[in-house]
Design a binder for these strands. Structure first.
Lengths: 250, 250
DNA sequence: CCGTACAATATGTACGTACATTTCACAACG
DNA sequence: CGTTGTGAAATGTACGTACATATTGTACGG
């Protein structure tokens, strides 16, 4: 398949479509081509190849790893969303008069979470639970777990006024640099509903996050966001997401 | 503020941070600098400027408009999410044995939706309602509205096997090229729950989408996705989202 | 046999240039 | 006075180059 240099569609968008088609056929199941190979094959510059891959990347299909190559994101029903990584940050930085209230700070034990953090199932965990306010009204309920060995020094910190990651970096010398996030719609339990002063029948977002540093998991976090106070909104244009008009199945 | 060329942090990431800081102070409230101005001011190449702006863009802070300039995304509580545009597509392309069942196809009237589409409140609307299956089990409930004047020719189409946008392009010569999308968590009504064969107490995603072509709204769509069958997942790394480690408020 | 060192590979960063396309303002024209 | 045309401004696309950095495999030496 060759590209049409007279087409209205940008070269990189054509290339993106072509690559997506070939991905669907399973042609790259063992190995995705390198930049140089695609440059050679399609006769375009590396810049154009990267632009195409950047878009496949941001739509969660591919992932690039420096020194290793471009790998295909395999997942079944859980659809990766690329730049959704900013989801949590967007909640954090939603403006308004931000404030948080510490509900719990101390030691906890949980075999499931301990295993997620790569610890023995009876390992002691540092736990921090907070309510996030925006405009004086509860917006989210947030709980983090870290290894007590790593975060023990944080037991005496004041988290009403200090960010967890900043404190972690300052006292423990580390901070999540990667990880994953997952979002689901749920019905809050009566207790959660009461804590967040939600009305009955109101649903909520449930966010789960595993934060890693240097490839090792260091933080597990769950966040519950009031559904009546929050929406995630996205603008799309042919300019920023041209693959959409070309490949949107519907 | 000047950039440190000996820093470990890439130039573009430093520039991103610098620009974000200046954005926060409101310095650019009237006008965001052009590429050329930033090239001049920071003494970097336009490539680097674009890389920085690309990241601000994908985190929903800025929006670039060809021929016009770079503008700041203003929104209060509804946080834009950049590449979340692929949200709907990800549902569509979630694989499995995809199938849809047409529940309704015909004329409808709705003053609110008509207004959203820029029509008179009593204008007749084309309406299409479908159930989306994945693996023989209902996944989503989907309803679209278009102006009857535009989409009248689609009344006789077979949407069990044909995509709406393809049919729209073929018969009506247009197709959404931009728009916006919004996501919320909701409790389905008993009727919706029954249609999607959901258990009691299970929440769902509610997606709303306005699709535009050439700047004019042409489609309003609502989608209900089963919460027990779907998750949105995102991987983040310092490599693909370095601003995160730098600016994560928590 | 194991570990270190080095080379090959592949992506990341950063520079440069040129032209295309869209938008907007303003002048010229009918 | 309105319409059309033209040019300036700004981002989009596309090419080129060079070097940095992370990963992996291999060869060499103890």
């Amino acid at each position: 398949m060759t590209l049409d240099r007279n087409s209205q569609m940008p070269l990189w968008a054509q290339l993106e479509t072509a690559l997506k088609t070939r991905l669907d056929t399973g042609e790259f199941d063992d190995r995705f081509p390198t930049d140089a190979e695609l440059v050679e094959e399609y006769g375009v510059s590396r810049h154009t190849v990267r632009e195409a891959i950047r878009h496949l990347n941001s739509s969660g299909i591919l992932r690039r790893e420096r020194g290793r190559g471009t790998v295909i994101n395999r997942s079944e029903f859980e659809q990766p969303l690329g730049a959704l990584y900013s989801l949590f940050r967007s909640v954090e930085s939603s403006g308004a008069t931000q404030r948080s209230l510490v509900l719990g700070l101390g030691e906890d034990m949980d075999p499931v979470i301990a295993e997620r953090l790569g610890l023995a199932s009876d390992a002691p965990l540092f736990s921090l639970e907070r309510i996030r306010f925006a405009d004086e009204t509860p917006l989210a309920l947030d709980r983090s777990w870290l290894s007590m060995e790593l975060a023990g020094d944080l037991l005496s910190s004041d988290f009403e006024h200090t960010a967890l990651y900043d404190e972690l970096a300052r006292k423990c010398g580390t901070r999540p640099d990667a990880g994953w996030e997952r979002i689901a719609p749920i019905m809050p339990t009566p207790e959660q509903r009461k804590t967040l002063t939600m009305r009955r029948g109101e649903a909520a977002f449930s966010l789960e996050r595993l934060g890693t540093a240097n490839g090792l998991p260091i933080e597990w976090r769950t966040t519950l966001i009031r559904g009546d106070r929050y929406r995630f909104v996205s603008n799309f244009t042919a300019g920023t997401a041209p693959s959409m008009t070309a490949t949107e199945p519907d």
